[in-house]
Amino acid sequence: MLEVNGINAYYGRAHILHDVSLGVGGGEVVALLGRNGSGKTTTLKTIMQIVPPETGSVHFDGEAITSLATYKVCRKGIGYVPEDRRIFSNLSVAKNLEAGRLPARAGLAEWTEDKLFKLFPNLRERRGNLGHQLSGGEQQMLSIARTLMGNPKLLLLDEPSEGIAPVIVEQMVRTIAELKTQGLSILLSEQNLHFARLVADRAYILETGSIKFAGTLQELESRPEVRDAFLAV
């Protein structure tokens, strides 16, 4: 469904991503693991064309999306939930959701405000609150819900477990599992191997901008030296 082929990305003269290739299949949950500054966020931004890659290509559903405008990438069916949530703090929860709304996609059930409130019950009672009045966990939920309003086929989640309370992390695990059963593909970046183990089918490890490992979570388990070299703090 998503194929990233040999992308190189730069910030000015700094070479951030070196020939990164990865793929996500239909209905799959894939984790992109790596330490702080290893290039996880940049990889996701490159897919969204927020940071267009200098070389290499990104294909989605067999179609090249490299050099498309970001909004068009989104309309092709890729939803992006940024690391720092970036909810519209001056808008209410309901309006944040409205801002993310896009027409339903053929063959997929349409997300509605009501369905999302079932997925994230905390948001229902906060419907009229402004974004900046929410807690960190609520903001994370709103950010995911807002992206789901665009009815994506593939969800890019940047560090969904970062900076939220353990009880919310558990809820996040259930949510991701729930989204998976509904047929959504997910690529998530994580530093937390434990969290990835609970939700992901496969994993890539990114270190200083290159892929160092690709395989299933079980394979990763069986190679503690890889884990220690690239993930241990």
Partner: peptide
């Protein structure tokens, strides 16, 4: 109006608005 909501969203964070499929 929806137009107003999108305008206010883009006012606050253009990059995020683009990532949500808003044609700015």
């Amino acid at each position: 109006t929806r137009w107003g909501t999108l305008v206010l969203a883009a006012t606050q964070d253009r990059e995020m608005a683009a990532a949500l499929g808003i044609n700015q």
